Computed example of a mutant assay.
Amino acid sequence: MRFNPKARLNTRRMGDAGRSGARGGGSGMPIPGGLAAGGGITGLIIVVVIVVASMFLGGGDSGGAFDTSRMSDTDRYEHCKTGADANDDVDCARVAVENSLYDFWSDTLPEFEPEQELRTFTGGVQTGCGQASADVGPFYCPADQTIYLDTTFFDEVLERQLGGPDGGFVEPYVLAHEYGHHIQNLMGTMGRVKTQQGPQSDAVRLELQADCYAGMWARAATTTEDEDGNVLITQLTQEDIEQAIEAAEAVGDDRIQSSGGGSVDPDSFTHGSAEQRVAWFRTGYENRSLRDCDTFAAGSV
């Protein structure tokens, strides 16, 4: 994956909470599981049904529940100015990917103005959905319309614990999946989730649709532009797409369950099997259609 050196990066929607020693707990409501917290990429957290979940599943209105502008910021992304910076620096590459996702979805769904924030942290962070730790994995909080990412996740969890790939396009796939949850929140899709476990459950359909949306973006990534009309991403190779597919396989419910030495229990799936996740990413990549990504309309996923 290569970025256009002449592209200008916009850090307006980026933030970093710095390092915290928290590993969960803390004040406020705890993250209530895969649905209220926008799923996360891995399904490592247990889906829990609690009353307050309905606050977060009603669509795009955050209700002012949490003001991220009052959160401390480390200015981690202040130096990211151009695509040349993105080619040389992983933090700036993250900015460029966010800019690309924002441009793609702004063009695809202009009626929703899909503005969000991408906030990184290390250890733990307070969110509009409660206190989160690195154990949650990357996730989207609809209450504050923010994607949260512990940047140690890719080496510590995805690669070492789950045997996932180590490559430059793995993080963009994960970010695209979480951005997909933001789109679902704006479109009211999260409110359609009633059944929370099982290979054909609404929870799994929500996650697979986010994978499909990630595929849609990946196919169009080299056409996305900065605010001046300069192309952001100049090269996306087949190897990049294979890295995304390997990452999707690694975070399948069956792969996660078997990696811990346990048996595979489809009735407890919350995110979909490796096969399902790869299939729906491919659907988005090959068909590039919101209609084809409608997992809730599919008879079987």
Rank of each mutant, 00 (worst) to 15 (best):
M1D: 03
K6A: 14
R8W: 01
L9D: 01
L9M: 04
R12E: 15
R13Q: 12
M14R: 00
M14I: 08
G15E: 07
G18W: 08
S20T: 00
A22M: 10
G26V: 04
S27D: 09
G28F: 05
A37N: 08
I41Q: 12
I41W: 11
G43F: 08
G43V: 07
V51R: 12
V51T: 14
V52I: 11
L57I: 13
G58N: 13
G64R: 00
A65I: 13
F66Y: 08
S69P: 04
R70L: 07
S72N: 01
D75G: 06
E78D: 15
K81R: 09
G83D: 00
A84P: 02
A84S: 10
A86S: 06
A86E: 03
R94T: 15
R94S: 08
V95A: 03
N99Q: 01
D103K: 05
D103G: 11
L109V: 14
L109D: 09
E111P: 00
E111S: 13
T120E: 11
T122K: 14
T122W: 07
G123R: 11
T127F: 12
G130Q: 05
G137F: 03
G137M: 06
G137L: 10
P138N: 03
F139K: 03
P142M: 09
Q145M: 14
I147T: 08
I147Y: 00
T151Y: 10
T151K: 04
T152W: 02
F153K: 09
E159D: 04
L162T: 12
G167C: 13
P172T: 00
I183V: 15
N185I: 03
M190V: 13
G191D: 05
Q200D: 10
D202L: 02
A203I: 06
V204T: 11
L206G: 05
C212P: 07
A214C: 13
G215A: 13
R219C: 02
D226T: 04
L232V: 05
L232A: 06
I233C: 00
L236D: 03
E239F: 08
A247S: 00
A248D: 00
A248E: 03
E249R: 14
V251S: 06
V251G: 08
G252W: 07
G252I: 09
I256R: 15
S258H: 08
G260Q: 10
G260D: 09
V264P: 00
D265F: 11
D265Q: 14
S268A: 10
E275H: 08
R277C: 11
A279R: 09
N287Y: 12
C293Q: 02
F296T: 15
A297V: 03
G299L: 06
